[in-house]
């Protein structure tokens, strides 16, 4: 008896739920939406230690994720997460976030530091961090309006040797004081 019912149920089930039998591979949106619990809806972060991904350059996201995945870039949680995705999926997510509008953060920055950093940015950083950090060049990330605490954490990781700087960046940072770097973080955070 049981067998008979189960057979009928299978037939009915096949009819009722046939739509779910053929599913397309996860879309860029499907993949990226799962990130938003931590990085904010469409990658616009409300948490000041979590980077906004909205409007970030796609190649910068892809490069970071691939380095998280391989372990080349150290991380707390991102390495564990990045390992769950194929390179193609990572590219799709990068493309999704790059298309989103820049998330303008409301945060307090030090005006004097922002002013002080304007020239430093131009001289030392502006060749890669284009347009006051609003534009990325190749895999250079967009810096504008990023959260200050996040930028400070990353700069600490760079200067303490936990995160490796690109060679060009290392050359420039070497010439800058701690105060210069701090002012630069305020500068980028203040860009809108």
């Amino acid at each position: 008896m049981k067998k008979k019912w189960s057979g009928l149920a299978l037939a009915a089930g096949a009819l009722a739920f046939s739509a779910t039998a053929f599913a397309a591979p996860p879309s860029a949106e499907m993949l990226a939406n799962a990130c938003a619990g931590c990085h904010g809806t469409n990658g616009g972060s409300a948490g000041d230690t979590m980077p906004s991904l909205a409007s970030q350059s796609a190649s910068s996201i892809v490069e970071s994720m691939l380095k998280f995945k391989s372990g080349e870039r150290s991380s707390t949680i991102m390495g564990r997460l990045a390992k769950g995705y194929s390179d193609e999926q990572i590219k799709a997510m990068g493309g999704f976030f790059a298309k989103q509008k820049l998330h303008v953060t409301q945060q307090v920055t030090d005006k004097a530091k922002v002013a002080q950093a304007t020239k430093i940015q131009e001289k030392s950083c502006g060749r890669c961090h284009l347009d006051e950090g609003k534009d990325g060049k190749d895999d250079t990330p967009v810096m504008a309006s990023q959260w200050l605490p996040y930028l400070q954490i990353q700069m600490d990781l760079y200067t303490s040797g936990h995160r490796k700087m690109p060679d060009k960046m290392a050359e420039k940072v070497k010439e800058l004081s701690k105060q210069d770097l701090d002012a630069l973080m305020h500068f980028y955070a203040a860009q809108k």
């Binding site: 938003a36 809806t41 000041d48 949680i77 605490p149």
Partner: peptide, 22 residues
């Protein structure tokens, strides 16, 4: 990583509650 993770955890809460309420 425990100290750094506490900082990220606070943003986890901020972001997920903002997702739910805006």
């Amino acid at each position: 990583d425990a100290k750094l993770e506490a900082k990220y955890a606070n943003s986890w809460l901020k972001n997920i509650l903002t997702e739910m309420s805006t």
